[in-house]
Design a protein around this nucleic acid. Structure first.
Lengths: 336, 336
DNA sequence: CGTTAGCACTCTACCTTGATGAGTGCTAAC
DNA sequence: GTTAGCACTCATCAAGGTAGAGTGCTAACG
């Protein structure tokens, strides 16, 4: 599709622009990357590349910058991930060195680390609780009127929900229900619990079926929301250091999206077939993100499910390095 | 300290500047607020006010803007809170109308509401768990190696922590410890649990005292962190609409502070004597906040403790209106 | 004596202008 | 096919110039 020389020129443009954030001209390429052709020749190649949609010109008489398509070609051409630089590797090791226990803490620490390494926004999403399994349901009475329902998953996550005791229902009854549910459903994955018909149990103890059903639903959703799917952002201000965001309006829109957790989850949601995914510019379906790229890696904590870590930055992001970073760190998290 | 006319002039400057964000000149005051004196007279008064430190001049031949001290005087002179406007009141009512249960949801909804009403950053801090009381400690086994320790407070909050079972300690033993702790400490407030010496219990069952102590500490802190003290930010981007933040550097610094939860808590931490507190400009001890004001109100959910809601904006914030809003909403939250 | 009108002065914001330089596209020569 | 040369285009930046807002001072007024 592209002959060797066009590839060389395109890659030079991409790399240079990623580094400098300045439109790159034919002279620059000829001088800085010496592959034995003159500036004029490069200009011809550039004209071709532009026609093919790989690069663009901000205005006549500026250099060229890669288009979404150009970045895409570049990323798809990356065969192997580069080694981490020594600096990166030691920083990561220091950061993960020893200690660090507890889901929440790890997520936050990772987010901070990633954002400081990349000067971009990092998004860390905790392992989904969907695939964890029910261990126990319990109830603890608070007073005559209310009690706490608790659901413990086999990975140690706990969801709790305060419920008002329906008239005539004692805590003892509720405890009995919990025992029955535990006996019946222990070992089921959380996402399948949604489909269960808890109302049936309620009948036996004189609670209105739908009331009980609703409480259970909330409880299960609570667990999913609790840690699984937990979204941690890091360094939302870092992106301000990037020259492309010196104009406020653009930045505001991006930040506004990041404030809405559901949108963030949608952005990170990836095809499950690949361990990485890269969304470049307009490939993100959110219009506000049309000048951003999102690189996501999956991590798996054995027995706890699947989570994601992402880096969001300008389309001019350092793809190879970020991919390597994410690759390395996602494995580190997986090992726990 | 200030004679009536100086007060009038000062207040006119403050009000006008709050509205327009433009330095206000003597003519403007003479025309817009007619208290029967000419521009020249006002100029004299302004010169005095400046010397006294209530107003400042960005540069020769610009109008005056209030200084921190000017705002302070203005705020301290507010005797009664103004009525909410009809618009504000209906918006609030609609937002809180019906439903809305569960701590987390209420906090988030409130944050969103406040930020959209004020075009400022809102900070909502959940009720502190410090004053809630221990209800039950429990343990649930996960597998041969680990178990979940759970601490239930009397307001229904639950903290959990996965612990590795020390060699030779069975879950049964741990359950026994929980029972003993529950029996001993039920009804103690969470903040006092910190001081307890849990190590003593460990001795009886052959666990190393400090190991156990550490796990308990984490558990208790976990509870405090869980919902109590939970910090929810709303509309961090709204502040971008304020003209004073059109210069990025300032905004970046503010946002950076907001990313660090501990700093936010410190900012909101108020003297406990007063139901409101207003921190103006340099009164915030953080240098990055020297151009911001923070208005905080306390709310009390009976039996759950004390929380805070704050609005952070430029020093040019609409003090009376925001105070009224916070007053109204904090009471609404309190009623649950 | 406090108040006010008038005036000269100051400073910012904004626009225009012109110079500079980076970069392109085209053409003609190698 | 490649390259040097040249005319042309734009963005950026500094300089200059104007308009407008606002001040401080002074002298007159009631």
């Amino acid at each position: 599709m592209l002959d060797e020389r066009k590839r060389q020129v395109l890659f030079a443009i991409v790399r240079d622009y990623i580094q400098t954030a300045e439109p790159v001209g034919s002279r620059t390429i000829a001088r800085r990357y010496e592959f034995g052709i003159g500036a004029a020749t490069i200009r011809n190649e550039m004209a071709d590349l532009e026609e093919m949609g790989f690069i663009e010109q901000p205005h006549t008489s500026a250099g060229r910058i890669p288009s979404d398509r150009g970045y895409r070609y570049y990323v798809d051409s990356l065969e192997t991930l580069p080694e981490l630089t020594v600096v990166d590797a030691t920083l990561i090791k220091r950061h993960f060195g020893g200690r660090l226990r507890g889901h929440e803490v790890v997520l936050e620490a990772t987010a901070r680390l990633l954002s400081s390494l990349t000067n971009c926004v990092s998004i860390v999403i905790g392992p989904s609780a969907a695939q964890t399994r029910l261990k126990v349901m319990q109830v603890v009475p608070l007073n005559e009127l209310s009690a706490v329902l608790m659901l413990v998953a086999d990975n140690g996550l706990v969801a709790s929900e305060v419920v008002r005791l329906p008239e005539g229902l004692s805590v003892v009854d509720l405890g009995e229900v919990c025992r029955v549910i535990t006996a019946h459903y222990q070992g089921r994955t959380i996402d399948r619990l949604h489909e269960m018909n808890f109302g049936a149990f309620a009948g036996g103890i004189g609670v209105r079926a739908e009331t009980f059903e609703r409480a259970m639903d909330k409880l299960i959703s609570g667990l999913e929301r609790l840690e699984g799917e937990r979204v941690v952002l890091g360094g939302a201000t870092n992106i301000l250091n990037q020259p492309e965001f010196k104009d406020l309006a653009k930045y505001r829109d991006v930040l506004k999206v990041l404030e809405v957790q559901e949108l963030v989850q949608k952005l990170v949601a990836t095809s499950t077939t690949n361990p990485y995914s890269v969304s470049i510019g307009a490939e993100n379906h959110l219009n506000e993100m049309r000048d951003c790229s999102i690189i996501t890696a999956r991590y798996t904590i054995s027995g706890e499910g699947i989570g994601h870590i992402s880096i969001l930055g300008p389309t001019r992001i350092e793809y190879p390095r970020v991919l390597s970073l994410l690759n390395y760190i996602s494995k580190l998290i997986g090992q726990g």
